[in-house]
Amino acid sequence: MNIFRFAGDMTHLCSIIVLLLKIQATKSCAGLSLRTQELYAIVFVSRYLDLFFTFISMYNVIMKLIFISSSFCIIWYMRCHRIVAQTYDREQDTFRVAFLVVPCFMLSLMINHEFSFTEVLWTFSIYLEAVAILPQLVLLQRTFNIDTLTSNYIFLLGAYRALYMLNWIYRYFTERDYSQWIVWTSGTLQTATYCDFFYYYILSWRKNERLSLPS
């Protein structure tokens, strides 16, 4: 495992932990899209089903279990926690996730490495992760609310994307037979949707800054 890959995993993990800590500390999830968080949970579950079939390393097993449980923990807070659930912008967070899930599933049936149960699900999770942030993007465009989305979270999420791309470049040049077009293409799209999200985050941040200044 190279340093980019490891750092990428760590920043990804930290971004989720930061989000969880923020929710816990403020007892609020205002501005956070439950639909995006649920899509991430679907992504993790469908990708990490191979926990039951293939063993790669202890590191992989532990990280997969942490990703799955932390994403469900965020969902639990947003749906079930007595106080946090009341701060969820239910009326604004209306993105139809079926518009993302169904096309991604169709695509994974058509374009995959191997037509098998786990492989199709794995491919589906790769496609879905690329667009999973869209409900959050739409919520941000509607409300300009960045209460729960701290700059730490945004930075860590961006670092994760950048480091994973460096990891692919590094692996391509250092490993024989390492090429994976499905992951590269969706990963690039995912980074592009993240950049869009980042742009609206900055926009909302500046808008909020202006509002809080005395006139």
Binding site: I56, S179, Q180, V183
Partner: peptide, 10 residues
């Protein structure tokens, strides 16, 4: 690429 290298990333 091999089966393993494709699935060793998270």
């Amino acid at each position: 690429c091999t089966e393993l290298s494709r699935h060793d990333e998270l």
